[in-house]
Design a protein around this nucleic acid. Structure first.
Length: 458
RNA sequence: GCAUCGGUGCCCGAGCGGACGAAGGGAGCGGCCUGCAAAGCCGUCUUAUCGCGGGUUCGAAUCCCGCCCGAUGCUCCA
């Protein structure tokens, strides 16, 4: 039984897909006006792991993750660069996809762009107008009428009255709105901004509507999981929910929110100026180290990512790879043979993961099995070690963590062999010379009872 | 202020009523192994005052109340 925390009911609930055996999931992607940072990476990794695990458990998963390519910030950036909105969003969209791909985030089943869904958004707004859940303000746009949605405020756990009090604290409220909480579904075109035709006035999509159009459009009513970063709970997700349900649709069955990444105790954000780009981290570390660091914290806990954390995770990745090399050097062949240890590990792994994606516990299980495999190797039980390795690979795969396979390199192998000959002849001076030379090239040697293995150190 | 989530060994971070004599990773130290390393294993720091004070319970890191501290959200946000 797979259980997940549902942000709407505020409890861990059993995942009960609308269609048995199939899970449909929508993950709010970024607005592409700049390069991705670690926060984007954490969110993407969280849902990537969920998708991989559900698939590993035998479910047929469909993931839709959007890219929002019309928005105030994109317009600003395009203006600042004297470029176009299309160019800016295409550029950052490509970077986003490439860098997350490098992190091992699998391509979603569909990655819609907001601009591809404008006509659906227009129809959606019409439907809301027809149901009297929205109204037009001439020259300004079309607004959602919050009063028409009785459940408003449940997702963020707030009373609409309280929400109303703080509305306008940061942005001036348009006097013509019926309620300060009302928000734009469609924004009237301004000079020099991208615009599309619409029955009310030419303009561009307002807030939250793009995700509703894309999620319902691609996954249909009552899709299973809607996820995103916790900073989207309000207003973004609550307003999506209001729009969809006020239009008569059954929206997401389960809401998930991943926690923020902090830097020195503060949320990483562009506005705070403390963000680290994904590219910066990827330039310094194995992408698997970043993923492991993220897996070692629960997705609903705020986590700190700094050099200490990254270096620690990188050391963990080295252990994983070293185990694979050791087993490889033992000559034992890959085997699906089960042992008491691998069975116990699988059970514990599933138990941890089924419980609201307990990746830290799941990673713990993997490392425990790794240690047992190393002990088996020390005891000369290569077969048992190979079984452990096979399971480590399988479980790691369910989390998107792979072990590095050494790539053969004849030139290096030749020198390793030369060193072995020297060692056999007890000519340790020569042997150490070769080892030091290889070390200078970033190649580290490990002597095992069955031969010497080597690895590249980055 | 209101809402939500937290405060666990040197660091990160699980656990969320009894198998806790608190997982796992990292760091330090000692040992074994090794020609020396690396890798690995074992031990150790670690009897972790589980933020503080009360309470419930046969039993609490886990539940309840109060307090202190922090993060996030309250129409830019992943």
């Amino acid at each position: 039984m797979i259980r997940l925390y549902d942000s709407l009911s505020r409890e861990v609930v059993e995942l009960r897909p609308r269609a048995p055996g199939e899970v449909s999931m929508y993950v709010c992607g970024p607005t592409v006006y700049d390069v991705p940072h670690l926060g984007h990476a954490r969110t993407a990794v969280t849902y990537d792991v969920l998708c991989r695990y559900l698939t590993w458990r035998g479910l047929d998963v469909t993931v839709v993750s959007n890219i929002t390519d019309v928005d105030d910030k994109i317009i600003e950036r395009a203006a600042a660069e004297e470029s176009t909105e299309q160019e800016v969003s295409a550029r950052f969209g490509d970077i986003y996809i490439r860098e997350l791909g490098a992190l091992g985030v699998a391509e979603p089943s569909a990655r819609p762009r907001a601009t591809e869904y404008v006509s659906q958004m227009v129809s959606f707004v019409e439907r809301l107008l027809a149901r009297d859940a929205a109204y037009v303000i001439d020259g300004a746009g079309v607004y959602f009428d919050v009063a028409r949605y009785a459940d408003y405020g449940r997702l963020p756990g707030r009373d609409p009255e309280e929400l109303r009090e703080s509305a306008g604290a940061r942005v001036a409220v348009d006097e013509r709105k019926r309620d300060p909480l009302d928000f734009a579904l469609w924004k009237a075109a301004k000079e020099g901004e991208p615009a599309w035709d619409a029955p009310w006035m030419p303009g561009r999509p307002g807030w939250h509507i793009e995700c509703v159009a894309m999620s319902l459009g691609l996954l249909g009513d009552g899709f299973d999981i809607h996820g995103g970063g916790s900073d989207l709970i309000f207003p973004h997700h609550e307003n999506e929910r209001a729009e969809a349900e006020a239009a008569g649709h059954r929206f997401a069955r389960l809401w998930m929110h991943s926690a923020m990444v902090n830097v020195e105790g503060e949320k990483m954000a562009k506005s705070a100026g403390n963000f680290r780009t994904l590219a910066d981290v990827l330039a310094l570390h194995d992408p698997r180290a970043l993923r492991l660091a993220m897996l070692q914290a629960h997705y609903r806990s705020t986590m700190e990512i700094d050099e200490t954390v990254l270096a620690g995770a990188a050391a963990g990745i080295n252990r994983l790879d070293a185990f694979a090399r050791r087993v490889g050097a033992s000559g034992a062949l890959d085997t699906t043979e089960r042992t008491a240890d691998t069975d116990a590990a699988r059970t514990a792994f599933v138990e941890a993961m089924d419980n609201d994606m307990g990746t830290p516990g799941a990673v713990g299980v993997i490392f425990e099995l790794l240690r047992k495999g190393n002990v088996a190797l020390d005891d000369g039980e290569a077969e048992a070690a190979a079984s452990a390795l096979h399971t480590v690979r399988d479980l790691g795969g369910a989390l998107g963590l792979s072990l590095r396979d050494s790539s053969p390199d004849e030139a290096i192998q030749q020198r390793v062999d030369e060193r072995q000959e020297a060692r056999a002849a007890r000519d340790y001076a020569t042997a150490d010379l070769i080892r030091a030379a290889l070390a200078d090239e970033g190649v580290e040697l490990e002597d095992t009872p069955t031969g010497t293995v080597w690895r590249r150190v980055t």
